[in-house]
C-alpha cells in the first residue's frame, strides 16, 4: 500500500490565483455576487468585511474533483447516502459569512435535504466540506467553517490532507473522518496518486480495496 502523498513538490503545483478586498459590507458582497455570472470558475469567500476571489488553476481543480470523487466512491461502497452540493454559495447573513466551496456533501443529514433545494436558514449545513488551498489564503477557513457549524472539514494543501472535527464550536484535528471512520487517509493518497495515472483504474483499485480490507459495516 502506498502511504505517501503525491510526489510533485507543492511549489511546482498550479494552485490558485487570489485577489482580496478588505472593508466590504455584506450588502456590497451580495451586490458583487449578483453582478457576476452564475457559471464561473472564480469562487468567492466572504467573512466579516473581507472578500477573497479564488481562481483555481489546474492542479487545484484536479485535486478538488478527485477528492470529491473519492468521497462519492466511499459513500457508494460503504452504503451511505450522499447529496452533492459542489460549489453552491453558502450564505449566512447572520454570521456575516458566505462561501463557495471546492466540494460539499450531506451524508449523515442527507435524509433532511433529500429531494429539495437546501435552505440554509432552516436546513443544517453540509456534513462534510472539502477545501484545496495550495497557496496562502487570507481567510481563516477553520474559523469560517466552524462558525457555520460544519461537522467535518477536509483541507488539502496539494500534499497532505488534514481532517478537522467540530467539537464545542471549534475544530480539532483528527486522524480519520467521522463520516467514514473505517477509511484511513492513506487510501486517499493512494487514490490521488493512482488517479494521476489512470482515473478509472484508480476507482477500481479503491473499490477493491474497500471490499478486500473487509470493512465491517
Amino acid at each position: 500500500m502506498v502511504s505517501t502523498t503525491p510526489q510533485q513538490p507543492i511549489t511546482n503545483l498550479k494552485g490558485e490565483q487570489r485577489v482580496v478586498i478588505h472593508h466590504l459590507s455584506w450588502e456590497s458582497y451580495l451586490q458583487i455576487l449578483h453582478a457576476l455570472p452564475n457559471h464561473r470558475r472564480t469562487r468567492l469567500i466572504y467573512t466579516n468585511g473581507t472578500l477573497e476571489f479564488i481562481m483555481p488553476l489546474e492542479d487545484h481543480d484536479f485535486f478538488g474533483r478527485m477528492i470529491g470523487r473519492f468521497i462519492y466512491f466511499l459513500a457508494r461502497e460503504l452504503g451511505r447516502k450522499i447529496k452533492t452540493i459542489g460549489s453552491t454559495t453558502l450564505n449566512y447573513p447572520d454570521l456575516d459569512k458566505g462561501a463557495e466551496l471546492d466540494e460539499g456533501f450531506y451524508i449523515q443529514n442527507q435524509p433532511l435535504v433529500a429531494g429539495k433545494t437546501v435552505d440554509l436558514s432552516q436546513d443544517p449545513p453540509p456534513d462534510l466540506v472539502v477545501e484545496v488551498d495550495i497557496t496562502h489564503t487570507d481567510i481563516d477557513k477553520n474559523r469560517l467553517y466552524a462558525a457555520m457549524g460544519i461537522g467535518e472539514f477536509w483541507r488539502f494543501n496539494g500534499q497532505e490532507l488534514k481532517i478537522y472535527q467540530l467539537q464545542n464550536q471549534q475544530y480539532i484535528e483528527v486522524e480519520t473522518s467521522i463520516a467514514f471512520s473505517e477509511v484511513p487517509k492513506s487510501w486517499l493518497y493512494e487514490f490521488l496518486e493512482n488517479s494521476r495515472q489512470d482515473e478509472l483504474a484508480a476507482e477500481t483499485t479503491l473499490c477493491q480495496h474497500i471490499r478486500q480490507k473487509g470493512v465491517n459495516q
Binding site: R18, I21, L36, P37, T42, M55
Partner: peptide
C-alpha cells in the same frame, strides 16, 4: 495576483465597481 471573470455584463461591471470600496 490576478483573477479573471468572463461573461460579465457592462452593468454587472458597474455594479461591482460601485460595491467595492
Amino acid at each position: 495576483q490576478r483573477v479573471v471573470i468572463h461573461h460579465v455584463t457592462w452593468e454587472g461591471y458597474l455594479q461591482i465597481l460601485a460595491a467595492l470600496p
